[in-house]
């Protein structure tokens, strides 16, 4: 169960906004976390709390393939990202490195900045505790669930090569 305050972002939040290229001289999660979402909202790194959520509109994470983007979000302690839709490379990256993400039109429509949100990872039920509403996320494809259960992509590769 994940619980935190919602931070609202719009359409087409690109990976340059999530973590600008000037910080790609490292892949350390703590370093990247200091600058998360900085070019979309310069105050974000200082005002967010660990456990908070990002709620965005369509095509979140478009642009470059940099895995530094989900690493920065996870490193900052954001518990999950809910969006109307995700760009495909970001979608794969998030699952591969263990950042929970959910697609939900309802949440994208109804959640306001500062709402207290609770997400049940298994059922995909999103509760808005501030507004006393409940939204559904698109189910995570079984293949991805299997990937998560086996501990992520690298763990499944580890099993394959028996290392």
């Amino acid at each position: 169960m994940m619980k935190g305050k919602a931070h609202i972002f719009g359409d087409d939040i690109d990976t340059d906004a999530i973590i600008p290229a000037r910080y790609l001289i490292t892949s350390d999660p703590d370093e990247l976390a200091k600058h998360v979402m900085e070019d979309a909202d310069p105050d974000f790194p200082s005002k967010m709390q660990r456990g908070d959520l990002i709620v965005a509109q369509k095509n979140f994470g478009c642009g470059s393939s940099r895995e530094h983007a989900p690493i920065a979000i996870k490193g900052a302690g954001i518990s999950c990202v809910i969006a109307r839709s995700f760009a495909r490379i970001f979608y794969r990256n998030a699952f591969n490195m263990g950042l929970p993400i959910f697609e939900s039109d309802e949440a994208a429509d109804k959640v306001s900045a500062g709402d207290e949100i609770e997400v049940d990872m298994d059922s995909g039920v999103i509760k808005n505790l501030t507004k006393n509403e409940e939204y559904r996320a698109a189910p995570i494809p079984p293949f991805m669930q299997e990937l998560i259960r086996s501990g992520g992509l690298m763990e499944s590769v580890r099993k394959k090569i028996g290392s």
């Binding site: 895995e67 490379i89 591969n96 690298m154 590769v157 394959k160 090569i161």
Partner: peptide, 18 residues
């Protein structure tokens, strides 16, 4: 097709990708 670093790591080891 582009992917992230973890997908690429898996392909570097196995020569495969999903």
């Amino acid at each position: 097709a582009g992917v992230g670093s973890t997908d690429l790591a898996a392909a570097m080891v196995t020569g495969e990708a999903w």
